[in-house]
Design a protein around this nucleic acid. Structure first.
Lengths: 348, 348
DNA sequence: GGCAACAGTGTTAACGCTCACATGGCAGAT
DNA sequence: ATCTGCCATGTGAGCGTTAACACTGTTGCC
C-alpha cells in the first residue's frame, strides 16, 4: 500500500493524497452535503487508491455509538431459536447494526451473569434475549445487564418488553381441532418444563379441554428431544393397554411428535386411525412425514423483525431522553394451525 | 452514579475515588503483577462502587485489537450450518473473542461483496466463512475481504485454509454399506447442485459404485428440502414402475431422505424390504423416524472447533509477522456411518 | 557506603476519528 | 462600498484507553 511505512491507511493519508484536510475526508465519507463535487471525487479516488477503510473503533469512541446489538440465545441449534436469530440478524443488518451473539450452554445464574457481562464488555447498544425460560428472563430482568433489552418469548411480569408467539392460542386451536373431530379428550406431551413455551402450550391445552368440559388427563413431561417423545409415546401406549382411552395426543413440538409417532407405530397403532397426533413448530419436514404431521406454525421471521423494531424503538427513545415506554410493552404474533394427515376422527 | 455530571464513569473517575492514577487502575484491570495488594483492593472497591466497566472501544483503538471475529454464513437455519455456527461461537468465547455474524440471503456476488464489506467495516480480526458453495468460496478467496479467513466446507483449490467433513468418505461408506448388503447398485438423490457438499457426496457415491464395478445410474438433483426429496422419490418410484431395478437409494441429506421415505410409502413400497434408504447428517430425529434412518454422522461441533483453532493460528502468526502457513492448509473431520433400520438386503 | 535491581506508582503521548468552531470567499441585500 | 449570510474548507480539541518512560523508595550485594 501507498501510505508511508506500510501501515494500513488512515484518514490523514487519504487527506494528504487528495490534497485536502482530514475533516473533508470525513465529510465525504459521511455524506455531508457541503462539499464541492470535484473535491468529493478527488477524495473518493484517493480512498480507492489507498484501499482505505474507516476505522470503526475510532469512530465509535468519539460518537459513543458502537452500532452493535447483542443477542443472547439459549440453544441456537433448535428450530425456533435458529429461525428467530436469523430474523433478528437480517433486520439488524437492514437497520445498519452489527449483531454479536452469545449462546448460553446452560441456564445457571453464573452463565447468565457471564453472558450479560460479556455483552456489556462489548458495549452493545442494546440486546435481544431469546429467552425461553422463566428463570432466564427473570435473571436478565433483575441483573445489571445490557440495556435496553428486549425478550423474545419471555413471559409476562418480568417488566421487560417482550415479543412472543401466541403459544396458548396455538395450543388451544390444536386441541379444539382435535375435540371438533370428535375426540372425547386430548392427551398432552409437554416440552421441557423449564421453558415458557412449554408452559404456555400446556395452559392452552388445558384451557381448551376445560372450556369444552372434557376431562384433563395427566400430562407427560418431555424435554423437546425426539427421544423423550418416543419414551413418552411408549408410556401412553402402556396407559392405553391398561385400558385408558388415548385417541388424541397434542405434542408440544414436532421433534417429540416424531418420537411419539414412532412409539405408536411400534405398538401397531395407526395414525390417525387409532390415535391422532398434533405437533407444534411446523418444521419443514412435518409435511413429509408418514403420516404428514398436523402442527402449529409460528412465524419466527416476524418475531425476529418485531423484536428488533421494539429494540430500536427503545434505543431511539433512550437516546432522546424520553421516558422508556411504560413497563408492559408486549407484541404478540399469532400462531396458525396447519391441519395435515396425522389428525382425524377417533375410532368408533 | 457518583461521577460528576451523571456520566457513565471512566477510568479517571475510578482513579480519583481510589486516590491513584488512571494508569494504576488500568494495571489492576489488566492484572498487571506489580501493584500493591492493598492498592488493588482499593481500586476494586472503587470500581465496584461506581459500577465502572472498561470501555472496550477505547481499548480496541489503542491496542489495535477488536477481539471480534466474523462469521459469514449462508443459511443458518439449516441443520449443518446452525451446528457449525454454534460450535464456532462456543470456541470463540472460550478464546476470549466476540462473534459477529452475517448471513447471506443469496450467493449473488453483490451479496458477498456487501457481507465482506460489512465485516471489514466492523474491523473483525479474522473471519470464518461457512461457505458451502463453490462460487461463494471463490468469490471470498478473490475479494479484498476480511483477513485472515478460514473456509468451512470450502472445496480445494481456493487457496484458503479449509476445515471440512470428509463428505466423500462418508458417502463412500454409505454406498459400500448398501452394496455389502447385496444391492447390485445404488441410486442417488443429490442435494443442491451448487453446494460443494452435494458435489463431494456425489463423488463418493460414484466412486464407491465404480470401485465395486456396479452400474452408475443417473443421479437426481434436489435442493436439500424435504419437498424435493419427495418429488424425486416419486420420480424414482416411476422409474421402478417402468422396470428399472431400484432397490437402494443414497440421499444427500436427511431432510430429503424424509421426503423420499414418504414417496416410497405412498407407492406402497416397504423400507427396507423393497427399497433401502440412507441419508446424510444424522439429524436428531433420524433415529426416530419410521423406519429409523441409516445415515452419516458429521461432527459439526468439531468442525467449529477446528476452524476456530485454524483461524486463531492465522491471527497469531499474522501478528508475529511469520509467513502464513503455505497455501493448502486443510483439516478434515471424518464422517461416520450410522446404520439403522432403513437399510437392509434387497428383495430376492 | 555505594550502586544495581526492582517493586510500585505517576506522567505523557499516542490511537483515528468526529465535533465545534474559525476562516476565507463570494453572492445578494442595503 | 459595506454588511449579512451561506458555502467550502481547515484547525484544534477531545473521546477513554494503553504503552513507554520517568520517578521514587526499598532491598541486596560487593
Amino acid at each position: 500500500m501507498n501510505p508511508p511505512g506500510g501501515r494500513t491507511p488512515v484518514m490523514a493519508d487519504v487527506a494528504r493524497l487528495a490534497g485536502v484536510s482530514h475533516q473533508t475526508v470525513s465529510r465525504v465519507i459521511n455524506g455531508h452535503p457541503n462539499v464541492r463535487e470535484e473535491t468529493v471525487l478527488r477524495v473518493r479516488r484517493a480512498i480507492e487508491e489507498l484501499g482505505y477503510h474507516r476505522n470503526s473503533t475510532a469512530r465509535a469512541l468519539v460518537t459513543r455509538r458502537t452500532n452493535v446489538l447483542g443477542v443472547i440465545a439459549f440453544d441456537t441449534t433448535l428450530f425456533g431459536p435458529a429461525q428467530t436469530l436469523s430474523g433478528i440478524e437480517r433486520a439488524a443488518r437492514e437497520a445498519g447494526y452489527f449483531v454479536s451473539i452469545v449462546s448460553l450452554d446452560d441456564v445457571s445464574p453464573d452463565g447468565i451473569v457471564a453472558a450479560a457481562e460479556y455483552l456489556i464488555q462489548q458495549s452493545v447498544e442494546g440486546c435481544v434475549a431469546i429467552a425461553p425460560q422463566r428463570s432466564l428472563v427473570e435473571a436478565l430482568a433483575d441483573l445489571p445487564g445490557p440495556r435496553p433489552l428486549v425478550a423474545v418469548e419471555g413471559g409476562e411480569g418480568s417488566g421487560l418488553p417482550v415479543v412472543c408467539v401466541d403459544q396458548t392460542q396455538g395450543a388451544r386451536e390444536a386441541v379444539r381441532h382435535l375435540l371438533d373431530l370428535g375426540h372425547t379428550t386430548v392427551h398432552h406431551v409437554e416440552g421441557d418444563p423449564l421453558w415458557l413455551e412449554s408452559e404456555a402450550r400446556a395452559v392452552g391445552w388445558r384451557g381448551a379441554l376445560e372450556q369444552a368440559g372434557a376431562p384433563v388427563p395427566e400430562p407427560l413431561q418431555g424435554d423437546w428431544s425426539p427421544r423423550s417423545g418416543y419414551d413418552l409415546g411408549r408410556r401412553l401406549v402402556a396407559r392405553r393397554a391398561a385400558g385408558e382411552r388415548v385417541t388424541a395426543i397434542f405434542v408440544s413440538n414436532d421433534q417429540m411428535a416424531i418420537g411419539v409417532l414412532r412409539a405408536l407405530h411400534e405398538a401397531g397403532l395407526n395414525v390417525p386411525g387409532d390415535v391422532s397426533v398434533v405437533g407444534f413448530d411446523d418444521v419443514p419436514e412435518a409435511e413429509f412425514l408418514t403420516p404428514s404431521l398436523t402442527t402449529v406454525f409460528q412465524d419466527f421471521a416476524q418475531v425476529g423483525k418485531e423484536s428488533l423494531a421494539l429494540l430500536l424503538g427503545q434505543i431511539g427513545t433512550g437516546r432522546e431522553g424520553a421516558a422508556p415506554p411504560a413497563g408492559g410493552v408486549r407484541r404478540v404474533v399469532p400462531a396458525r394451525l396447519r391441519v395435515r394427515g396425522s389428525s382425524g376422527p377417533p375410532p368408533p
